[in-house]
Amino acid sequence: MDILGLFKHADTMLDAAKRLESAGYAFTVFSPVPLVHEIDHAFGERKSYIKYFTFFGGLSGFFTGTLLALGTAALYVLPRGGRPIFFITPTLIISYETTILFGVGITLLSFFLFAGLPSFKKDVPSPEAAIDSFGLLVDDIREDEFVKLEKILKESGADEVKRVEEE
């Protein structure tokens, strides 16, 4: 059983979150808009590993492009326009484009990986949390904890506290 607190205002939600943290509960924040700055401000900056994926994506794209342009030219040797078979300028252009292509692609994949998408198992605990409310969800609580948590949330200004049954 989970408990969800819905807040109309972000700052009250963050207050509640701080209280939950100090009470030793792990929680998940749901919001219709990114609250990255605010949460970073409240709980300290978090690390993201996407940049490494992006970097290696770009790098691999560069090498794929180079390999594709030079390798396929070497596979079937057809000289054109008095230029060498390994002609660097066009290879760089192709590599440039593949760098971006791969960089973007790998970034998307890493985003999916880190954001846990796609996953159809769980829905948003309450529709409002996707529209105009900020949700604070605490997972897997016992029945006796519910009242305590409800109290904390209500006190911090939750407009509504919901019990969410697991499917």
Binding site: A73, A74, V77, P79, G82, R83, P84, I85, F86
Partner: peptide, 8 residues
């Protein structure tokens, strides 16, 4: 040879 302009 692959770097020779005109190849041949």
């Amino acid at each position: 040879s692959y770097r020779t302009p005109g190849y041949f």
